[in-house]
Design a binder for these strands. Structure first.
Lengths: 187, 187
DNA sequence: TTCAGAGTGTGATATTTAGCACAAATTTTT
DNA sequence: AAAAATTTGTGCTAAATATCACACTCTGAA
């Protein structure tokens, strides 16, 4: 059976088994339990995580104490504070497990090393970065263009599983509406 | 005097004069007048533009006919429909000149070619892509966290020149509020 | 099983914002 | 210089959303 990470990378770039083993040697596995965190505000994100199993949120608090979800993470997604990781600067956000999680991570140093050692991975991450940017652009488009109700429907359509796994108030926070308003959107 | 594009690229990667000349040979200059367009919805963005002089907007229309500004472009910025350019797919957006413009552009093919021929430029664009993604992430953060008034103040602080160059209704559209609401934010 | 905490739905009200109308100011075109 | 078009501010009203309050459900721990 093919390793899920190999499968994931091969959606973009074909790999020999040896190449994949080499890549994998730059990663470590880690297990985290529900409510544990991967990153806290003020820390420097020195790892990028690939989610084998589980569900996570990246979020931050407004001065008022209101929580805003920036991103959810589920199986086969990457998660980190991208800004902190790239710039090696202090993070503005937190990342927590919503469920028990199995994660593969690569450190900043290992990723730099791997990028230099293996041009295929430089291309892989370049492409990932491009697609990530496109996804963010479309989220902005949606925030500008669509009503709350429309954003709710689009999210439900795109990630139906998310609604079974995470509390609605987190969905509300991701969409940028209050939980009460979200609760009333269906009626 | 150093070419402004050389100066721009050297903020990320140092270049010899020969290297820069080689890079520049992949670009063409084009002049456009106010109200002319660079890209229309449905076309494929086959060029990426670097703005030597002038001001532009990338935007799209809601079904209702409401205009939403995705991005402004001014001197030393790049502009294109990133999604369409990267995927070579049909664009959802339009790009118009708000002022008379002088632009340098590189075609998709030339950029691919240059990326392969010159590893420094692969790194340059990878870095650009990363920073672009971070900027978009921060815009989402701001859309979730800040009130209209706060977003207005932040934009004014970051790009004061923009407010002298483009009509307020376009600023409103960029911030995601109606022009009437924007007009009332200061009082 | 029981109990505490988290999650959820809904009424009432306050706040924010949009949308329309119109007049004044400014810019562009002829 | 005059005319036309665009931009801007502001009063008014309607719609969307936030906020507070409270009851009910569900889940996990003791």
């Amino acid at each position: 059976m093919k390793h899920p990470l190999k499968q994931h990378i091969e959606e973009i770039i074909k790999l020999t088994d040896e190449e994949f083993e080499f890549i994998l040697s730059h990663f470590e596995t880690i297990y985290k339990r529900k409510h544990q965190y991967l990153l806290q505000k003020g820390e420097i994100a020195d790892k990028e995580y690939w989610i084998v199993k589980g569900c996570l949120k990246s979020y931050f608090f407004e001065e008022s104490g209101k929580e805003h979800i920036l991103q959810f993470g589920m199986e086969n997604w990457w998660i980190t504070d991208y800004e902190s990781f790239v710039k090696q600067s202090k993070s503005k956000i937190n990342i927590d497990c919503i469920e028990d999680c199995e994660l593969l991570y690569i450190t900043f140093e290992n990723r730099e090393k791997l990028t230099k050692e293996m041009h295929k991975m430089e291309r892989f991450w370049a492409k990932k970065s491009k697609f990530g940017r496109i996804a963010l652009q479309n989220r902005i488009l949606s925030l500008l263009k669509n009503s709350s109700k429309e954003r709710y429907d689009l999210l439900l359509e795109q990630y139906p599983k998310l609604f079974q796994r995470v509390p609605k108030k987190l969905i509300a926070s991701y969409l940028g509406v209050s939980r009460e308003t979200l609760s009333r959107l269906n009626s």
